[in-house]
Design a protein around this nucleic acid. Structure first.
Lengths: 220, 220
DNA sequence: GACGCGTATTCTATCGATAAAATCTCTCGA
DNA sequence: TCGAGAGATTTTATCGATAGAATACGCGTC
């Protein structure tokens, strides 16, 4: 993404800055799901006028992180068990093809990047603040060789939506589960290009994470 | 979609109106791919101020129909053979799972809706202005039973992007091809719930349409 | 003590104006 | 003839103000 480079060099437009910070706050749960997003309040908080905020909210609405009420402004997309279940289903099905095509197209550079991402993830414990980032990077590395940027982008969008739920129930524990082993198995199957096994493992990984999260959500 | 009903009852906000008209003009090719989109000009043309236009453009950028240049405004997403090829690939892979899940989940009501959509399409010739709409409705009916609204929405987004290319080369002919027979075969396989055959036929349908369009595009 | 209605307040949606940035144009010099 | 550069012009990004909705509040009534 050269856009990132450009953004870091050139002064990002206010709209872009606000968009980024808003997204971050939504993903980290600072702006809780369902919360009303008052334009003026956000504008002050981000040190900008109403127009950039409004524009950023429009984009985020198209991305599904924000909801637009007819003429009642915006609110953070609500989170519910039903929405979460649907999200997990969509991810399993979408990544089924994205992972398959990634495995079919992956070259040696992809393999190496995946090995590195897995190595980095392995060395961290879940409590480490760096774990989240390494985890995301690992999953992204798995899919990175899929020749369709469009589908990769869609998978990324879904990953972001899922991240919101992780923030909601961040203290969740995974008793009786060895997440590291799951990652290792997925990486191994991927590097061996065993498409059906890799897909099954990945889906199982998502589904069992989902089961724990769902429980935590329901309890809230 | 109850949203549609609401929109038709309540006065749609100016932003919503502009968004809709802009999307239409982009899909119909009135605003050609790559064309510069000057905010002021659009505002006058749609009888609105700059803010609603700008907001609508932001949304459309997130949907991929419009591109945002760092601080040089917006332009209609450019069309190229490479982009088109990528789009077709993404559609084939995405609809592979969406169609499969639609076939696995379709109930009698879905079957009937599909039969109706196919019937309507069959009765029209390609030159009829209503054909485009009936064609879109048929393809949508195929996927309508997929239990994931998210994935259906993504498929819809890709369909829109593809529509733009059809507008670019609208006079294209399909010599030596029986499109109606292809649709009939797809509908038949779908109703018989023969997943692999239906998927293969659908992908073949997209790929051969793509081949003709690609040729027309390259000639331009 | 709860409900419904009219008013006050809060927010949203939208406009018009403006500074900063980008692009175009025209002139001058090699 | 071509290219560089200053200046004029266009266009973007952003702000502050405002009309119109929507919501909250308080009062009187049953």
């Amino acid at each position: 993404m050269q856009a990132n480079i450009d953004e870091s060099l050139a002064t990002p437009s206010l709209t872009a800055q606000v968009h980024r910070r808003l997204r971050d706050d939504l993903l980290r749960g600072v702006l809780a799901p369902g919360a009303k997003l008052k334009v003026q309040a956000l504008a002050e908080s981000y040190g900008a006028g109403a127009s950039p905020v409004r524009e950023a909210l429009s984009s985020l609405a198209a991305e599904g992180l924000v909801e637009r009420l007819d003429s009642r402004g915006f609110r953070a997309a609500p989170a519910s068990v039903a929405d979460f279940d649907e999200l997990v289903r969509a991810r399993c099905w979408l990544e089924e093809v994205v992972l398959r095509e990634s495995l079919l197209a992956g070259d040696p550079a992809w393999e190496e990047a995946l090995v590195v991402a897995h190595w980095r993830l392995k060395r961290l414990i879940r409590a480490d603040p760096a774990w989240e980032g390494a985890h995301a990077a690992f999953h992204q590395a798995l899919l990175a060789a899929c020749p369709s940027p469009t589908l990769r982008g869609m998978a990324e969008t879904l990953r972001e939506r899922a991240e919101r739920y992780r923030a909601v129930a961040k203290s969740v524990a995974y008793p009786g589960r060895d997440v590291a082993a799951e990652h290792a198995a997925i990486a191994e199957a991927a590097l061996a290009r065993e498409v059906p096994r890799a897909v099954a493992l990945l889906q199982e990984h998502y589904r069992s994470t989902a089961a724990f999260l769902r429980e935590a959500l329901a309890k809230r």
